[in-house]
Design a protein around this nucleic acid. Structure first.
Lengths: 229, 229
DNA sequence: CGCCCTGTTGACCCCTTTCAACGGGTGTGG
DNA sequence: CCACACCCGTTGAAAGGGGTCAACAGGGCG
């Protein structure tokens, strides 16, 4: 049931995304791996031996119920660290949305490094706190917001991550089904809502996996439930 | 907009819930405070100066949208630590569900203690990881489950926390509105679903804030979406 | 003792899901 | 390089689960 990640190990040649003191220390214990699109990096319930950092590409973190219903907990993009939420086993499944390049850290050496260096330690606990913060905001989306508000919030999340401006095209690396599973909606509702936004002139979708927002302020207002929109 | 917690400071007299090495160390830097029912301990957005541990009573951790819609992220019960999810500001609001006794730790001394003692450090990061784990399971409830499954899951959460057996009465310290806001449902739906469970002989509610489950296995099956139930 | 808050139940409605069909882009194999 | 199949995205119509609005009951607190 739990597949070994199909990963190609190479020597590390690329610089980490945000250079900092702890990055140099962590670089020494990391191994660069490539994972092909749609391959599994680890499964929920697997022994959590490694944590990862994304150098390029995008990763989907999800949980699946026994009957197949799926909830996507997060998307890890360039620079993001994932797989820190161990407690022996991984709590989520990690799959490559695109072809992806990762740095892999063994749990034991990461812990050892954390014991030695306080800046690594605080960096790792920052990651955990940020993940918890994101999960709590995600809870608000699922528990309180309408479909229209959720889709607007989702697009806004990636506007911020991409630092995109009005009219600027940016990438949404996941498919519609992934968006639906992140938002607790069906793929049809996501499609319809995006079509509504297009018709209202709020967004354009030049190609699959691409989007631009024409009026970020309006979209943000919709996300917050401003009934004028 | 942000109220100072109305708390009565007393000298610490009670032992921490689960005695361990790190507890002794933490005891030295903690102050016991009492908070009355319905009082705010801290507000989302307040400067995060303190973390807390529950000695007795129950605390509600929630986020509120500008228009008043509320999502409860978690309930902190006896022995639970909360307010660790700082990043300058608190990410959630903490309110006393019942009269509550807390140990309060200042953020700075907690960090200092963490730097000195690895067992404190690992305990605090365990708390963060457990909170993240709980939030991810919560996401599945909100994103994937039906009302019936959510209410069953909710009761099961407290069956496990109380370690209750079939037929054994245990406490649900929160009101119906709190359950609804935790589950992303309305109070009416929670009531109706609980009434269904009562009618099916699955649960009994002797008094307000009390419940007993007659068939924990069946309730767990309902929670997981077993369509036979 | 009485008011008020919390919980409960009923009726109706609406938003989202479900089921279905179709088009177009994409990736693959010849 | 091209052809074809398949997957993904999109749109329509109908159904249903949970929300909304309303009324009422009971218990707790002042």
């Amino acid at each position: 049931m739990s597949y070994a990640p199909i990963a190609q190990v190479v020597t590390q040649t690329r610089r980490a995304w945000t250079p900092s003191v702890s990055d140099d220390a962590m670089k020494a214990i990391g191994t660069v791996v490539h994972v092909a699109r749609n391959e599994t990096i680890f499964n929920e319930g697997d022994l959590a031996d490694y944590s990862y950092k994304v150098l390029s590409g995008a990763v989907r973190l999800s949980k699946v119920m026994i009957d197949g219903r799926r909830q996507i907990a997060d998307f890890a993009l360039t620079g993001d660290i994932f797989g820190l939420d161990w407690s022996d086993d991984y709590a989520v499944t990690a799959e490559a949305l695109t072809e992806v390049t990762l740095v892999r850290y063994s749990r034991s050496s990461l812990q050892r490094l954390g014991d030695e260096r306080s800046e690594v330690r605080s960096k790792l606990s920052d990651v955990l706190r940020r993940d918890l913060w994101a999960a709590q905001n995600h809870l608000v989306m699922l528990g309180c917001q309408t479909a229209r508000e959720r889709v607007a919030s989702f697009v806004m999340l990636f506007v911020k991550r991409s630092n995109a401006k009005n009219g600027q095209v940016f990438e949404l690396p996941m498919g519609r089904q992934d968006i639906a599973d992140y938002l607790g909606l069906t793929i049809e509702t996501v499609c319809r809502t995006l079509s509504d936004f297009k018709q209202e002139g709020l967004v354009v979708t030049p190609k699959r996996h691409e989007i631009a927002v024409n009026n970020i302020g309006t979209l943000a207002a919709i996300a917050q439930g401003d009934s004028d929109n």
